[in-house]
Design a protein around this nucleic acid. Structure first.
Length: 358
RNA sequence: GGAGAGGUGGCAGAGCGGUUGAAUGCACCGGUCUUGAAAACCGGCAUGGGUUUAUAGCCCAUCGAGGGUUCGAAUCCCUCCCUCUCCGCCA
């Protein structure tokens, strides 16, 4: 959610930022709403102030056994007038809040202009592409032939885009998670954390999933949602609290299941395990001072890259363009690993990790 | 799920309809004293918002959350959430 004070102070910069996202300017509308709201608030507070003052005096007069009917009448008049003003104020506040929550984050200056993933900028390529004397098969064929990756049973148990893993593949996931957690905790200073996989609406709103992206989420019951990433609980650990600057940066890593209804991506990447409704992920979250956040983003990206290097995988780092950068992010690096079996065995880079400054 | 107890400042803990944003203790910050430290003593010490050149004042809100009663609510009433104790049910 945007800070109204930034828009008040730098309306031009805010509109320029919206333009970069391909959105029409709104700063004038927003600041006008804001100043109306504040004027109303001042008026209401003056009324409340008078009411408080009168009530105190009533107490004092009654204590002395004096009459206070005139003041009681005055307070009654204030109370008759206040609700209308309060309702107006609440409506303005809600409209304002709606704007602040539904607009995407301001993009960093370094984000390249562009409309979709075609315009993302290559930052670096690392590792050498493996060569094969045969045509590599993709993970679906390999996994099914091994009898360890079972999409049919995934569909039977739950529906499309679920999988059942057995034996070495199930074990592989566990081993990878351990490897990543151990590396991040013992070498990179992250704190291992195991948060709830179900959170309430307030928490989902705290990281921007709600109110905009409800259709991408699984709702379990009233006010309970399955997390689409452990970023949600991890980041909200710091919500509603004022952090001691000395305790920063706060670095956390977690291995959790993630659940995504993915309504928006139907028909795309439907084959195999690339986009599943349920998947597991080792997440890293760093909470830093704003001025340190760019350096932290580089550090975090490096932590993620280290994992791939040690696994001997070839990858590239892409800086997402303005059109491809997510709603909450100021800038994002995608790390794409070379998957030889993709594209009919010709191989291609696929995103396996994404690091953002939010 | 049922019965009971409770949720107050960084922590502990009073207050239970009025001038209480909140006693007291601890912690913390500043000062006096001391060669230095401790102790003792003195002073300060919640958060968010509005107004404002202002981290000065002034004002509003906040004692788990949301409603209500009242001229006035931390204090009374209702709903919800959470914690603790006991009982039940279940993996």
């Amino acid at each position: 959610m945007h800070d109204i004070r930034f828009i008040r102070d730098y309306p031009e910069a805010f509109d320029a930022a919206l333009a970069k996202r391909g959105l029409a300017p709104l700063a004038t509308d927003i600041t006008s709403l804001d100043s109306q709201r504040r004027a109303l608030q001042t008026e209401i507070q003056a009324l409340q102030s008078r009411r408080n003052e009168a009530s105190k005096e009533i107490g004092m007069r009654k204590g002395k056994g004096e009459d206070a009917d005139d003041l009681i009448q005055e307070v009654a008049d204030i109370k008759a007038k206040a609700p209308e003003l309060e309702a107006q104020e609440a409506e303005l506040a809600q409209t304002l809040m709606g704007h602040l929550m539904s607009l995407p984050n301001i993009l960093d200056d370094s984000v390249p202009q562009g409309s979709d993933e075609e315009d993302n900028a290559l930052v670096r390529t690392v590792g050498t592409l493996p060569k094969f004397s045969f045509t590599p098969q993709d993970h679906v064929t390999l996994g099914e032939n091994l009898g360890q990756m079972d999409f049919a049973n995934g569909a039977k148990l739950a529906g499309a885009r679920f999988v059942v893993l057995h034996d070495q593949l199930a074990r592989l996931e566990r081993a990878l998670a351990s490897f990543m957690l151990d590396t991040h905790t013992s070498e990179f200073g992250y704190r291992e954390t195991l948060p709830p996989a179900i959170v309430n609406t307030k928490t989902m709103t705290g990281t921007g999933q709600l109110p905009k992206f409800a259709e991408d989420l699984y709702a379990v019951e009233e006010d309970k949602w399955l997390i689409p990433t452990s970023e949600v609980p991890l980041t909200n650990l710091a919500s509603d609290s004022i952090l001691d600057a000395d305790s920063l940066p706060l670095r956390m890593t977690a291995y959790t299941p993630c659940f995504r209804a993915e309504a928006g991506s139907a028909g795309r990447d439907t084959r195999g395990m690339i986009r599943q409704h349920q998947f597991s992920k080792v997440e890293m979250v760093s909470i830093t001072k704003p001025e340190d956040s760019d350096a932290e983003l580089e550090r975090m990206t490096n932590c993620a890259e280290t994992i791939l290097q040690r696994l001997g995988l070839a990858y590239r780092v892409m800086k997402l363009c303005s059109g491809d950068t997510g709603f909450s992010a100021q800038q994002t690096y995608d790390i794409e690993v070379w998957l030889p079996g993709q594209d009919e065995g010709r191989g291609m880079y696929r995103e396996i990790s994404s690091c953002s400054n939010c």
